[in-house]
Design a protein around this nucleic acid. Structure first.
Length: 285
DNA sequence: CACCAGGGTACCT
DNA sequence: AGGTACCATGGT
């Protein structure tokens, strides 16, 4: 199916679109000749950046476009966020390496499910697994004929009906029972994802970590990338590398020491600092 | 071919 | 509490 073409333009400052959609927080963006193509909710989207705005195009009725500005966090004052970072050399270097890197505001279910699939997987593989899942279980979308994406991310209700073998066929291996358990918890109402975002960050984290296969790292990703708890600080292998090499170069800090450090040192936007360190570690050499 | 990947868990000490 | 093997699969 081929709907109309709807376009808009969001004025932005300090916005590195490529780094933002391609830095491992979301898994359904691909570079095209003129920009980036992806899916937000039930809409196929193409984005491109010019000097002072992001141009957007979609093939489904866009309404007031608020969903897009919200997803892209187009109205966030990035300079004010960066100003809250501790003034240290690693963060100065990280900011210098990528000045317009942003955090997106993703839909909680897609974010939770995607990060359940992320454990000990490279980002390229996570993308591949997610696309298999979407192609097999996602609702078809209105898209242009040459679109690379043609399906929405599958709902929890749809995945709750799948078998573990169906999910394993999407190459997710031992993560399949975890995704299935999450889908069933959300579909049954046992886990209310809308309510999770209402409480404190610690209460929200505790609820997410009730799920099998969701520990502190994955929970913190969801808290940060979907709910906007900016103090959430996911520590994956890259961020651990950054902490060891850049902040504890000599000694070998114990886990408890590291936990105290990350929960007190980086300030109210610790999650943003984390994303800058993550991107910096992955892109230097 | 080894080694590693946006980890979590069970099971040791 | 801190360390470790194991889980499934593919990229580099």
């Amino acid at each position: 199916m081929n709907g109309g073409v709807f376009q808009t333009r969001l004025p932005v400052r300090d916005y590195d679109l490529a780094a933002t959609v391609d830095c491992g927080q979301a898994f359904r963006w691909r570079e095209t000749g003129s920009g980036w193509e992806g899916v937000i909710g039930a809409r196929w989207v193409r984005l491109s950046k010019d000097a002072d705005s992001i141009a957007a195009e979609t093939s489904a009725e866009p309404g007031d476009w608020r969903w897009l500005a919200d997803y892209l966090q187009a109205d966030l004052d990035l300079a004010a966020v960066l100003a809250t970072f501790p003034d240290d050399e690693p963060l100065r270097q990280s900011i210098a390496a990528c000045r317009g890197l942003r955090l997106l505001r993703q839909e909680p279910w897609e974010c939770l499910a995607s990060f359940i699939l992320s454990s000990t997987k490279q980002i390229v593989q996570i993308r591949q697994i997610v696309e298999l899942l979407c192609t097999r279980f996602g609702t078809p979308l209105e898209v242009p004929v040459d679109a690379r994406f043609a399906h929405a991310f599958p709902t929890a209700a749809r995945l709750a009906l799948a078998s573990e073998a169906d999910l394993r066929a999407c190459k997710m291996g031992f993560r399949a029972p975890n995704l299935l358990a999450a889908a069933r918890a959300v579909d049954s109402g046992q886990l209310d994802l809308a309510a999770v975002g209402q409480g404190t960050v610690d209460a929200a984290r505790e609820q997410l970590m009730q799920l099998p296969g969701v520990g502190p790292k994955i929970a913190n990703c969801v808290l940060l990338f979907a709910y906007g708890y900016q103090q959430a600080f996911p520590v994956d292998v890259w961020v651990m590398k950054a902490l060891r090499q850049l902040y504890f170069p000599k000694r070998r800090p114990k886990p408890e020491r590291l936990r105290r450090f990350v929960s007190s040192y980086f300030g109210p936007n610790a999650g943003y600092a984390q994303q800058y360190l993550f991107h910096y570690m992955r892109t230097r050499e």
